[in-house]
Design a protein around this nucleic acid. Structure first.
Lengths: 266, 266
DNA sequence: CCCCGCGCATTGTCCAGTCAATGCGTGCGG
DNA sequence: CCGCACGCATTGACTGGACAATGCGCGGGG
């Protein structure tokens, strides 16, 4: 048949050694020079580029990372629980990042930066909020961090006329939670519709979230409705795959008919 | 500061042209030779490798793909609805792939290949099923296809002693659904616990699902319990990110306290 | 008119280098 | 003993080639 490319054989060989424990998570891989010598004898590899190509495969698979100028290291993941069902809880969502944290080992300090602005949202958001042409929205953009490394992005959008002059626009923490503010305005959130789009991050997202090469993200669109069926809030969450496990529960009685999705993709 | 590498500038330039509509989805990109000529004048690029490096960035971002020997083309996505909440429905899950299909345009024919075996499951599955050391499990492995292109993998595991000799072991469709079979055995499924792990696919998964270079997957572990709180079934779904949008709903009253995750990552 | 084989454009793999950037550690000077 | 500058190991960027693999289309033969 067709022979496997040498760089693929190298990648396969190293991948096997990672999964069988020869190179455990956190350990250092052989350097390019060492690999060149080894596979030079085994497969007649003569160019450093071929070695780099093989290592590049594993980097893009999210298995290893290059720490210049120290060498390549096996990735070590520590995942936080991301729980979209917690959004409609009475408790302010700020405590969730704490409760979630307890599930992992403690000792890491969570923080978040909040930024409020008035924006003309993207078509995907306009569509879900049901905005009229030209109508604007209030945006609450949050970056959630743990020990100063960003964990996820959380941007909430609400029809501007609904929240102008209220605590929703307050830049900084709102102790009782912004969902409570919306409840006080007569729009208690009772139903949430969640969409997850999996993809590779854009360069600006890579920078904002300090993502490695082989790290996918989930774009989580959460559309929440009041008891009268009006879309009140759309939240765009960006969830890095290497730092989260997305968790939720289902109950037998909760089952209704499958809703259609009338919206386009973002 | 530090100057942006040339291949990054090329990637940024092409990415911008993709997102602003200069190269719409499905269209062909300039060939390497054409780009070499263009950026040779603009940035003094002289080597084809540098052009390839820039294109490689976009390939790994899932924005373009190389169709050898035709050229590079902008990716065109068509996503199917993946709805984990449908699992605990009365209706057999086979119909779901149909109902989901209707949401997109019609005309594609779904099919699935089923394979039943007795296996020694991975530690992650053993843990969730609560298997004793040495205890085996029955496995129902499904590949779901649409017009003969695979859409997702769906492997269900049940304690062997529970289903040996029952219709669960029947290789092929079970008209009333395997969940109904488990119900007849006195283990009606009433509660589901769902975990989603985002990552890049392994090479064998790339082959089985015919995945492109920049396509992440979600490993969806679904653990379902009977009314007495016993873990009855663990299902491992592998969901390619380019062919799915994961959707579910939440209701205000459904909120309980956040469950802890006693299990390790897979 | 139809079919088949071969040419050709394009991407894939690999080579053998050069020079730059970057942290870490060593050793020297105060 | 402390601090800082410089060397060094390592990865990053790029060059300028060579030859292989692969489908599609065109032209010639039936």
């Amino acid at each position: 048949m067709k022979p496997t490319p040498v760089y693929q054989q190298i990648a396969d060989d190293l991948r096997r050694q990672i999964s069988d424990g020869t190179f455990p998570p956190g350990s250092q891989m052989p350097t390019e020079a060492e690999l060149l010598e080894k596979y030079g004898e085994l497969h007649g590899v003569r160019s450093r580029q071929t070695i780099r190509q093989g290592l590049g495969v594993l980097v893009h698979e999210g298995l290893i990372e290059a720490r210049r100028p120290k060498g390549y290291f096996v990735i070590q993941r520590k995942r936080l629980v991301y729980r979209p069902q917690a959004e409609l809880r009475q408790k302010p969502p700020e405590v969730d990042i704490f409760t979630n944290l307890v599930q992992e080992e403690d000792g890491r300090t969570p923080s978040q930066e909040i930024e409020v602005s008035i924006v003309d949202p993207t078509p995907a958001i306009r569509e879900r909020l049901g905005l009229e042409p030209g109508e604007l929205a209030a945006a609450r953009r949050r970056v959630r961090k743990l020990d100063d490394v960003p964990y996820n992005l959380n941007d909430s959008y609400v029809r501007l006329s609904l929240v102008q002059g209220t605590d929703f626009m307050h830049p900084g923490d709102v102790a009782r939670g912004t969902n409570a503010v919306l409840g006080e305005l007569g729009h208690e959130l009772v139903y949430g519709f969640h969409e997850f789009y999996l993809r590779m991050p854009m360069p600006d997202e890579v920078q904002r979230l300090q993502l490695g090469a082989g790290v996918p993200v989930a774009e989580h669109l959460s559309t929440t409705f009041d008891s009268e069926g009006n879309a009140v809030q759309v939240t765009v969450n960006l969830i890095p795959g290497d730092r989260h496990v997305i968790v939720f529960e289902t109950h037998r009685e909760a089952g209704t008919d499958a809703p259609r999705i009338p919206w386009g993709n973002p």
